[in-house]
């Protein structure tokens, strides 16, 4: 277990230090959400309707932006080879790297979302639901991002391919995330089922994505 935490700790320290890229996703998230109302104009009703969808799409793209750096640095400096040798199973390595990516990227963005939602006139009633749905949904986003990164490890400029591979898998998270967020002001009965499906997506990714990612890395090392 201490091996698992040591990898998470190292990855988070690396994200926060120079050249780590924690600032990149955060900067992108904030920039888009600041520019959006300026571009759309001061129609408060329209902005309010737009807010949940805009926040979710921005979250998706911000997470995608940092995806190609999940495995690439370790692949380039030979660390990934040593990780493949063990003793920790490669599946757990992939899980640890996903969790570190979530803690360093997805979770901070989810926590900031209600605050930045104010710029889009997000209904105050939705602050709670959007935080909850984003914390849960961003975990699935990080796990799927890790899978994409594992498949494209070793490819130069793999970012574009990752987007093509991963965006279809992000669509359910987007649909049910927005649906859970909107439920309170729209159809309240939808909140429960949407959150349950979002949880199911996250749990399924938690189990399947690391296994698939490990298989992809093994295949690449051969």
């Amino acid at each position: 277990m201490s091996m698992f935490w040591s990898l998470i700790r190292r990855d988070i320290v690396l994200t926060l230090r120079q050249g780590g890229g924690a600032g990149m996703a955060l900067g992108f998230f904030i920039t888009v959400l600041v520019l959006l109302p300026l571009g759309i104009g001061p129609d408060l009703k329209f902005l309010q309707r737009l807010a949940p969808g805009a926040l979710w799409i921005t979250l998706l793209l911000s997470v995608l932006l940092s995806t190609d750096r999940i495995f690439a640095p370790d692949y380039e400096d030979g660390s990934l080879e040593l990780m493949t040798m063990g003793p920790m199973p490669l599946e757990l390595v992939a899980l640890a790297k996903s969790v570190a990516h979530w803690l360093g990227t997805g979770l901070p963005l989810a926590i900031l979302a209600p605050g930045l939602g104010v710029l889009l006139n997000l209904d105050a009633l939705l602050f709670g639901p959007i935080l909850l749905a984003m914390v849960l949904g961003s975990l699935a986003l990080s796990l799927l991002a890790c899978l994409g990164a594992a498949i494209t490890v070793g490819l130069r400029r793999g970012g574009m391919i990752i987007s093509l591979l991963i965006l279809p898998l992000y669509v359910p998270v987007l649909i049910f995330g927005v649906s859970a967020t909107n439920a309170i002001t729209g159809v309240p009965e939808l909140f429960g089922p949407s959150m349950l499906i979002l949880t199911a997506i996250s749990l399924a990714s938690l189990v399947l994505a690391p296994i698939a990612a490990a298989a992809a890395i093994r295949a690449h090392m051969a």
């Binding site: 091996m3 040591s6 120079q18 780590g20 400096d77 080879e81 040593l82």
Partner: peptide, 30 residues
């Protein structure tokens, strides 16, 4: 592999970490 050290052409070092942090991570991880 689990009983072996492999030292290839690459050093498996993180340049953003200190010398001590680099070693301490691999000790924990292994």
């Amino acid at each position: 592999g689990q009983r072996a050290h492999y030292l290839g052409h690459q050093n498996a070092l993180k340049l953003a970490l200190s010398v001590e942090e680099n070693l301490s991570f691999w000790a924990d991880f292994m």
